[in-house]
Amino acid sequence: MKPPAPATATPADPAGETDAALIELRDVAVGARAPAGRFLIEAVDWSVARDEFWLVAGLPGCGKSLLLQTAAGLLPPGRGSLRLCGREVAALSETEFAGVRRRIGFVFPDGGRLFNDLTVAQNVGLPLCYQRDCSLDAVAEPVGELLEWAGLAAFANAEPSRLGRSFRQRAAAARALALEPEVLFLDNPLSGLDAGQSRWWLNAIEQLAGGRAAIRHGPSTLIVAVDDLRPWRGPGRQLALIQENRWRRLGDLATAGDEPLLRELLAKPAASG
């Protein structure tokens, strides 16, 4: 059983916030508008409820990363309505938006975009130090716990550039979990990883989704962008496909229909980037 989210991670719920959908996109257009007037992805109608596990699949370059960044509030939608934690983003003040954003974690692909001038521990502790206005020593306990979870305790004082890509990405995941987000976005977490590292990630994500991860207040809602569906087969996973500038919800992965793109993604060789 997953423990309830702490009061520090969740700002006082303002009037109008509902728990019906943590993330809601209505007729959203993603990416820059092409000269022909079309966006990269058109008409996304997507609602993510608490405790759901979503897979967003598509071929490389179809706009999965942009869709995830838009849904996480990192990019403004080209058109349409985006609601985060039950609140319309366009109507939020800067302070309110920052509060909502802290409830959403994001792990970037290909090394996780760590800050190379900080050590691994400083990277993981940075969001805590910044939001709580304290030194790294004051957050040593949660940082140590996250590093332990990521298997990086031995590399706490190492520079990220000295770590391999898979370990850097683990550190990025630990950093994203530091603020105890309710939703975690993972952009192609298995990209370029070997079988052993992929197993660690699949296991870690499975534990996070099931509320069994050895960290306090892990996110219960996960959204993962993938371009190879084979490792992600399993029950209780919602699937959405991006194909030909359109977003489509296919429902549970285990019962998803039989269509060409799905067959291709389920038969695709690994490490396609």
Binding site: Q69, A72, L74, A98, R101, R102, G105, F106, F108, G112, R113, L114, F115, N116, L126, P127, Y130, Q131, A172, R175, A176, A178, L179
Partner: peptide, 18 residues
């Protein structure tokens, strides 16, 4: 170029402030 600005925003840190 390395996307650190977006990474800061994803952590709720104002890039101008940091």
């Amino acid at each position: 170029a390395l996307g650190e600005v977006e990474a800061l925003e994803a952590l709720g840190i104002d890039p101008i402030h940091y």
